[in-house]
């Protein structure tokens, strides 16, 4: 998958579903919104399964912002 809007869409869908939020902002931090280590793994693995590519979980642990996850997913999808 290389279509950026499609990648963004699946990341946003997974983010909203796991955190049960509407209208996420790029600066939202997964861990400040109630996400924990196990939920982070669930989120990243769900995106990895859809993309068929690996997203570095360590990077997401260090920077839990939606904008950073979108960047990682776009890079992984290339």
């Amino acid at each position: 998958m290389e279509n950026t809007p499609a990648v963004d869409e699946l990341v946003l869908a997974a983010w909203c579903d796991i955190l049960d939020v509407r209208s996420p902002s790029p600066d939202d931090d997964f861990f400040d919104l109630g996400g924990n280590s196990l939920l982070a793994v669930t989120l990243v693995e769900r995106i990895e399964d859809a993309l068929g590519a690996e997203i570095p979980l360590e990077e997401f642990f260090l920077d839990g912002r939606l904008a950073s996850l979108l960047d990682s997913a776009r890079t992984a999808a290339k």
Binding site: F31, N36, S37, A40, E58, F61, L62, G64
Partner: peptide
């Protein structure tokens, strides 16, 4: 502290 908090704090 959860695993993520410990991981980031130790950097």
């Amino acid at each position: 502290a959860n695993l993520r908090e410990i991981y980031t704090a130790a950097q």
